[in-house]
Simulated assay, not measured.
Amino acid sequence: MPKRKNTFSSWRRGLAQRVVHAGWAWAQRTGSVTAEHPGRYRFGAMGTGTRLAFPLGTVFGEPWIHLGAHCVIGEQVTLTAGLMPDLDLGPDPILRIGDGVVLGRGSHVIADTTVTIGSDCYFGPYVYVTSTNHSYDDPHEPIGKQWPRMEPVEIGPGCWIGTGAVVLPGARIGRNVVVAAGAVVRGAVPDHAVVAGAPARVVRRWTPADGWQPPLRTPQPVPIPEGVTPEQLCALSGLDEEAAARLAELDEEAAAGLAELEPGS
């Protein structure tokens, strides 16, 4: 005989789930860190619209961390300046993150010496960037007890860093570079390159003379046809009415701005 379902128990479980999910959503909203609501964190600079999602990872050395505007820092992202908390690192910032940067969930940026991330960089989840590496010069001393080596790291603007990539001390990544998932980057990477592997090597590069070499295997993006309205785009993408209305407002604002720029207006 089939076991009778306990409807009261199922109802209680469903109610508990809704309460837990609502509570967690409230905690995420309330616990996120912004310039207007920094909580206990005192960053050297934090631009308008930047948000660190809750729960945060390890964060210390905030006075020497400068965050640009409109950055999205995912959950469990670690940001550190200095080897340990409560150090005086001098007058200049150690970790600089430009405008519009996205750091994926679980990523680490370890800045024991200067680390610079240019504007509009996108990091996938669990990217690891560090300016410090262990040394093992003395074969008789445990590696963990030997003084580490530190070199500045620079990531140029517009880069896309894939999931699980590692950027080692001394790396200098150029502008608009793609770092493949799982790559281990060291040394210099030129502008407009794609690197992959461990250690990472250039597998594709763009130059004004030759374009992408080897040629891209994916088709070119299809441009939006002229005359397509925001409402039609929203219908194709499944956006709700509120988002469609906002896009329509932006379209009207853009049209008004163009009208003001026309001669005689």
Rank of each mutant, 00 (worst) to 15 (best):
L258Y: 11
S119G: 09
N6W: 07
G118T: 02
E226P: 02
G124T: 00
R246A: 12
C71N: 06
W11Y: 02
E62C: 02
T58I: 09
D92Q: 14
V194G: 03
M150K: 15
A69I: 07
G100K: 03
K5S: 05
G61Y: 09
I224Y: 07
P85E: 00
G174I: 00
M150N: 15
V19D: 00
G44E: 00
P139H: 14
I97A: 12
Q220R: 15
D138E: 14
T30S: 15
S131Q: 10
R4Q: 11
I224C: 13
P214M: 12
E75G: 13
G61M: 05
V77I: 01
G144I: 13
I94Q: 10
E260M: 09
D138Q: 14
R42P: 01
G182Q: 08
C159V: 06
P63M: 10
V189Y: 01
V185P: 04
E226T: 06
R175I: 04
L239N: 14
P38R: 09
G49H: 07
S32Y: 10
P142E: 10
V222T: 00
A53D: 02
S237G: 12
W64A: 05
Q17T: 03
I143L: 14
F123T: 01
R12H: 03
T50F: 06
P208G: 14
A165W: 07
L79D: 06
F60N: 07
P169A: 09
R172G: 04
P230E: 05
D86S: 13
R42K: 05
A165P: 01
A69R: 14
P190V: 05
G106Q: 05
W212Y: 11
E226H: 11
G61K: 01
G164V: 00
R204F: 07
A53G: 01
Y122D: 11
P85T: 00
G44P: 04
A111C: 04
L56M: 11
A244N: 09
V77N: 08
M150C: 14
R4S: 15
L261G: 07
A245D: 15
A22K: 08
W160Q: 03
R172S: 08
D112E: 12
G14K: 04
V20T: 08
R149I: 03
A25I: 04
G264R: 01
L87P: 09
G118W: 02
H70I: 03
S107I: 02
A183W: 08
Q76W: 09
L103Q: 01
H70Y: 11
Q220N: 13
A256I: 00
A255F: 00
F123D: 05
R96T: 08
N176P: 13
H70E: 09
T116A: 12
G68A: 07
R96P: 07
P63W: 07
L83M: 14
E75N: 13
P214G: 12
T30N: 14
T207V: 07
H140D: 15
A245M: 10
G124M: 06
E62S: 04
K3S: 10
A53F: 01
Q17N: 12
D86F: 15
I224A: 08
P169Y: 10
S107Q: 01
R4M: 11
V189R: 06
L233E: 09
L56I: 06
G106H: 00
P63E: 06
P263H: 02
G74V: 02
C159R: 09
W11G: 05
G104F: 03
C121Q: 06
V195E: 01
V153M: 12
